[in-house]
Amino acid sequence: RKESAFKSMLKQAAPPIELDAVWEDIRERFVKEPAFEDITLESERKRIFKDFMHVLEHEC
């Protein structure tokens, strides 16, 4: 699924995404990734990013 691929892309980011990361600041790192391009709505990208950050916070 496209959403899973997007989350995997975020999870495998190098360097890892920090807990205090803001979408607008890290977005540039992913613009050339196929998983990024597959999610065409920016609002959807932000939503998935927020979900990812929520999970990340609870893993720590």
Score class of each variant (00 low, 15 high):
residue 1 R to A: 07
residue 1 R to D: 15
residue 1 R to K: 13
residue 1 R to M: 15
residue 1 R to L: 05
residue 1 R to E: 07
residue 2 K to W: 04
residue 2 K to I: 06
residue 2 K to P: 03
residue 2 K to A: 04
residue 2 K to R: 13
residue 2 K to H: 05
residue 2 K to L: 05
residue 3 E to Y: 04
residue 3 E to N: 03
residue 3 E to C: 03
residue 3 E to A: 07
residue 4 S to F: 15
residue 5 A to P: 04
residue 5 A to H: 15
residue 5 A to G: 12
residue 6 F to K: 00
residue 6 F to Y: 03
residue 6 F to N: 02
residue 7 K to A: 08
residue 8 S to D: 10
residue 8 S to A: 09
residue 8 S to I: 13
residue 8 S to F: 06
residue 9 M to W: 02
residue 9 M to I: 05
residue 9 M to V: 03
residue 9 M to F: 01
residue 10 L to M: 03
residue 10 L to Y: 02
residue 10 L to N: 01
residue 11 K to A: 14
residue 12 Q to I: 06
residue 12 Q to S: 10
residue 12 Q to M: 09
residue 13 A to F: 03
residue 13 A to K: 04
residue 14 A to S: 14
residue 14 A to K: 10
residue 14 A to H: 14
residue 14 A to G: 05
residue 15 P to W: 03
residue 15 P to N: 03
residue 15 P to T: 08
residue 15 P to K: 05
residue 16 P to W: 03
residue 16 P to K: 13
residue 16 P to Q: 07
residue 16 P to V: 07
residue 16 P to F: 06
residue 17 I to Q: 00
residue 17 I to F: 04
residue 17 I to Y: 01
residue 17 I to H: 00
residue 17 I to A: 00
residue 18 E to Q: 05
residue 18 E to I: 08
residue 18 E to H: 15
residue 18 E to K: 12
residue 18 E to W: 07
residue 19 L to A: 12
residue 19 L to D: 10
residue 19 L to T: 13
residue 19 L to M: 13
residue 20 D to S: 11
residue 20 D to H: 08
residue 20 D to A: 11
residue 20 D to G: 15
residue 21 A to I: 04
residue 21 A to G: 05
residue 22 V to L: 08
residue 22 V to A: 09
residue 22 V to D: 10
residue 22 V to K: 12
residue 22 V to R: 12
residue 22 V to I: 08
residue 22 V to T: 13
residue 23 W to A: 01
residue 23 W to M: 00
residue 23 W to T: 02
residue 24 E to L: 04
residue 24 E to C: 07
residue 24 E to M: 05
residue 24 E to N: 06
residue 25 D to R: 08
residue 25 D to E: 09
residue 25 D to I: 05
residue 25 D to C: 08
residue 26 I to T: 10
residue 27 R to P: 00
residue 29 R to K: 07
residue 29 R to G: 05
residue 30 F to I: 02
residue 31 V to L: 10
residue 31 V to G: 10
residue 31 V to A: 12
residue 32 K to D: 09
residue 32 K to Y: 06
residue 32 K to L: 08
residue 32 K to I: 05
residue 32 K to Q: 12
residue 32 K to W: 08
residue 33 E to T: 11
residue 33 E to W: 05
residue 33 E to R: 08
residue 34 P to A: 10
residue 34 P to C: 09
residue 34 P to Y: 04
residue 34 P to V: 09
residue 35 A to W: 02
residue 35 A to Q: 09
residue 36 F to V: 01
residue 36 F to A: 01
residue 37 E to G: 14
residue 37 E to K: 14
residue 37 E to F: 05
residue 37 E to D: 13
residue 38 D to S: 14
residue 38 D to C: 14
residue 38 D to R: 11
residue 39 I to F: 03
residue 39 I to R: 01
residue 40 T to R: 12
residue 40 T to C: 10
residue 40 T to W: 07
residue 41 L to H: 12
residue 41 L to I: 13
residue 41 L to W: 08
residue 41 L to Q: 12
residue 41 L to V: 13
residue 42 E to G: 02
residue 43 S to G: 10
residue 43 S to W: 05
residue 43 S to R: 11
residue 43 S to A: 13
residue 44 E to D: 09
residue 44 E to V: 05
residue 44 E to Q: 10
residue 44 E to A: 06
residue 45 R to M: 02
residue 45 R to L: 00
residue 47 R to E: 10
residue 48 I to N: 03
residue 48 I to F: 05
residue 49 F to D: 02
residue 49 F to V: 02
residue 49 F to K: 00
residue 49 F to I: 00
residue 50 K to P: 00
residue 50 K to E: 13
residue 51 D to I: 03
residue 54 H to F: 12
residue 54 H to I: 13
residue 56 L to W: 10
residue 56 L to K: 12
residue 56 L to F: 12
residue 57 E to N: 06
residue 57 E to R: 11
residue 57 E to H: 15
residue 57 E to F: 06
residue 57 E to T: 11
residue 57 E to K: 13
residue 58 H to Y: 14
residue 58 H to Q: 14
residue 58 H to M: 12
residue 58 H to A: 12
residue 58 H to F: 09
residue 59 E to K: 15
residue 59 E to H: 07
residue 59 E to M: 04
residue 60 C to D: 14
residue 60 C to V: 07
residue 60 C to I: 11
residue 60 C to R: 10
residue 60 C to N: 03
